[in-house]
Design a protein around this nucleic acid. Structure first.
Lengths: 162, 162
DNA sequence: TCTCTTAGTTCTTATCACGAACTCAGACGA
DNA sequence: TCGTCTGAGTTCGTGATAAGAACTAAGAGA
């Protein structure tokens, strides 16, 4: 994979999409989260698996910790000193849908429908998919979606009334 | 926003998440798609709205077109020559869930629950959300999800049998 | 012919990723 | 006590690329 490139600060204004993208910083963050969700939680394991440079991995992990998406947890293997590994926080778990949508799109559009990562429910072991539904519960196809930005003034108003 | 940084090629192996992330290349691609879905489709409009440099925008658009995620459409305004604008293809529309998950996470975790972009169903105008469901239709909370990688050998086997 | 607009392209500079080597700290063996 | 091993980073030189400003292209209209 080609390394992510420098970005200049963008004004997120009031857009959560921009905010989220900016917070994550670059695609390595997403891939690091993938490792954590797959149960790969130690520095060297992540580094080897992704082939990311050590310095960049250290920086990304620090950023994710600072963001509150990842936390460090101490562990000690017998006959070894205390070390720590990385785990997603609740905020980090909130990013699982992102990985699932990437997987779904990749399986469908890049991998000809072949599944490469399995996402299942813990209890039943059933495969899990992402769906769109209206608040009233009706399922919606992607091409029926409309996106519109809410004006900054309106957003600011809502914020003030909190 | 700080500019995306160079990445070296990573072996996607058989992982669609890595494949998808690598295909998109960097976060600018996601933000460009955001513009297109919001109806901002012309070079100068996207450039001004995102504050992306012109050279990078041209490169990103070319990449998205090459990927088949975006296509150019000719248009002509009265008293003006023919120009073209950019629109998502079906493959591109398949990435809408990605934007919706980013928006949802950003609204919840970065923006204190304030909605900044509205995603609705075209017909009813109802707000749309992303949900996880098992294939049998049961709704699943993110913390009940388990991710596991499918071994490359298995994936290769499935591919051969197609 | 001159100017205006949109859509890029070119060029220079600054920044960041890469990758190899190095540091650090505790555990263990001799 | 000394040397070594291992995991987890940190440092540093080099090269690739984004930023940003300036320039080009090409048709429309005065």
């Amino acid at each position: 994979m080609v390394a992510p490139k420098p970005r200049t600060p963008i004004d997120a204004g009031n857009c959560s999409i921009i905010g989220a993208v900016d917070a994550l910083g670059d695609v390595w963050s997403i891939l690091v989260l993938r490792e954590l969700f797959l149960g790969i939680r130690r520095f060297n394991d992540i580094q080897g698996d992704l082939g990311i440079s050590r310095s960049v991995l250290a920086a990304r992990l620090a950023r994710l910790v600072e963001l509150g998406v990842v936390r460090t947890v101490a562990y000690q293997e017998p006959g070894d000193r205390v070390r720590h590994e990385y785990r997603p926080t609740r905020k980090g778990v909130g990013l699982l849908p992102l990985l699932v949508t990437l997987k779904t799109w990749g399986d469908e559009h890049l991998n000809l429908g072949v599944e490469t990562v399995r996402i299942t429910e813990r209890e039943s072991g059933e495969d899990v998919r992402v769906e769109f539904r209206t608040v009233s519960g009706k399922q919606v196809q992607p091409n029926q979606l409309v996106a519109q930005q809410i004006s900054p003034a309106v957003v600011a108003g809502v914020r003030r009334n909190r």
